[in-house]
C-alpha cells in the first residue's frame, strides 16, 4: 500500500514539477516587468496572494473565479487526450450561456427541475456548438484549430444577436434567471454550482481513466496507429472528446448565468463569459491535461484573477499583468522539456 502511494507520488513529481517550474517562470517574468515599470514585485505579490488566499472571503471569491476555468480546462484537456486541439471552448461557453439564460429566464418550471433543466440546456447548447467542428474533422479532415477559431467568432456575434432577443426590461443583458433557476449563494459570489462543476470534473476523470471508452480515447490520442490496430475507432474517440468538451464548456456558460450572482444573466457584450475559454487552455496545461489537476490549476489561477484586485488597489500594479503571467506560463508549458533544457544548461 505504502509502496503504491510512494510510486504514485513519484509519478506525480515530474509533471507537477514541470507545472510548478512554468508557474515560477511566469511569476518571475511578471516580477521583472513590475521592476521595469517601477513597481515593487514583492509588495505586489504579497497583496495578490493575501487577497486571494489570505482570508475565507478571499478563498470564496477565488473559487468563484476558478469555477468556469475548471470546466474550460476540461474542454482543452479531453481534446488533448484524444489528440485534438479543441480551442473552441470560448464559443461553446457563449452558446451554453445563451441556452441557460433562455431556459432560466424565459421558461417557468417548478423549483428544482428548473435549475436542472436550465443547466442541462446550457450543456446541450455547448455540445451542439461543439459538434460541427467534430464532424468536420471526422468527415472532411478539417483541422480543428481552424474550425474552432472560426466557430468561436461566429458564436460571439451569434450570441450577441441572441442576447438582444432574450433581453427583458434591461437591454444590456438577458432576462435574469428566475429564482427557481438559480444556484444557492454560498458566500461572497460563490454559488452551489461549484459542486456540480467539481462533480463533472470527477466524472470526466472516471470516464477517462476508469472506463473502456476512456482508455480507447486516450490510446487513440497517444498512439492512433496502435489504436487502429486494436480495432479502436479514432473517429469515435474524437467525437466523444468534442462532446465531453462541449458539455464542460456549456456548463461553464450555464454556471456564469445560473450561478452568476448577482446579475444571473448573460451580458450583451459577453462581459461575464469572455476569455474563460482561452484561459482554460492555460489552466489545462498547468493541470497537465488532467481533470483533477485542472481543479487545482483553476484554483491557482482563480487566485491570481481575484488577488489582482488587491494587487492593484494596494500595490498600484495594473491588474492586467496577470494575463501576461498566464501567457508566459502557457508558452513555458508549450515547450515539452523546458525543465530538462534548463537543467542541462546549468549543469
Amino acid at each position: 500500500m505504502i509502496n503504491r502511494i510512494v510510486k504514485g507520488l513519484r509519478d506525480l513529481a515530474r509533471p507537477v514539477g514541470q507545472s510548478v517550474f512554468a508557474v515560477l517562470v511566469g511569476l518571475s517574468i511578471g516580477a521583472l516587468i513590475m521592476i521595469i515599470s517601477g513597481n515593487n514585485p514583492i509588495a505586489a505579490y504579497y497583496a495578490l496572494f493575501k487577497g486571494a488566499f489570505g482570508s475565507l472571503s478571499g478563498w470564496l471569491q477565488t473559487l468563484t473565479f476558478a469555477t468556469p476555468l475548471m470546466l474550460t480546462a476540461i474542454t482543452f484537456a479531453v481534446g488533448m487526450k484524444a489528440g485534438i486541439f479543441n480551442i473552441g471552448a470560448e464559443g461553446q461557453v457563449y452558446i451554453g450561456a445563451v441556452g441557460a439564460a433562455w431556459v432560466g429566464g424565459w421558461i417557468a418550471l417548478p423549483a428544482g427541475l428548473h435549475v436542472a433543466a436550465a443547466t442541462a440546456f446550457g450543456m446541450l447548447f455547448g455540445v451542439l456548438w461543439a459538434l460541427p467542428a467534430a464532424l468536420l474533422k471526422i468527415w472532411r479532415g478539417v483541422h480543428e484549430v481552424i474550425s474552432t477559431i472560426m466557430f468561436n467568432w461566429i458564436a460571439f456575434y451569434f450570441a450577441i444577436f441572441l442576447v438582444g432577443h432574450l433581453a427583458g426590461e434591461r437591454a444590456e443583458l438577458t432576462k435574469p434567471a428566475m429564482t427557481s433557476a438559480r444556484y444557492a449563494v454560498l458566500g461572497e459570489s460563490l454559488t452551489s454550482v461549484i459542486f456540480v462543476v467539481i462533480a463533472l470534473c470527477i466524472l470526466v476523470y472516471i470516464l477517462l481513466w476508469r472506463t473502456r471508452t476512456g482508455y480507447e480515447l486516450r490510446l487513440a490520442g497517444s498512439n492512433p496507429d496502435a489504436a487502429r490496430y486494436a480495432g479502436i475507432s479514432v473517429r469515435r474517440a474524437i467525437l466523444i472528446s468534442f462532446i465531453v468538451g462541449g458539455l464542460a464548456a456549456g456548463l461553464a456558460g450555464a454556471a456564469q448565468v445560473l450561478g452568476g450572482h448577482p446579475s444571473w444573466a448573460l451580458f450583451k457584450g459577453m462581459g461575464n463569459v469572455a476569455n474563460y475559454g482561452f484561459m482554460g487552455i492555460g489552466i489545462a496545461l498547468i493541470g497537465r491535461n488532467h481533470p483533477i489537476g485542472g481543479i487545482f490549476a483553476a484554483i491557482f489561477y482563480g487566485g491570481l484573477l481575484n488577488g489582482r484586485i488587491a494587487m492593484q488597489a494596494e500595490a498600484g500594479v495594473y491588474s492586467e499583468l496577470v494575463y501576461v503571467i498566464l501567457g508566459i506560463i502557457i508558452i513555458s508549458l508549450a515547450i515539452p522539456d523546458l525543465l530538462a533544457i534548463v537543467k542541462k544548461r546549468f549543469k
Binding site: G282, E320, L326, G327, I330
Partner: peptide
C-alpha cells in the same frame, strides 16, 4: 529549438497581448 507545441505557443502570444 524548444520543440514547443505551435498552437499552444501561438495562443500564449495572444493571451500575453490581452494583458500586456
Amino acid at each position: 529549438y524548444g520543440r514547443a507545441n505551435q498552437i499552444v505557443a501561438g495562443m500564449g502570444i495572444n493571451i500575453i497581448a490581452i494583458g500586456f
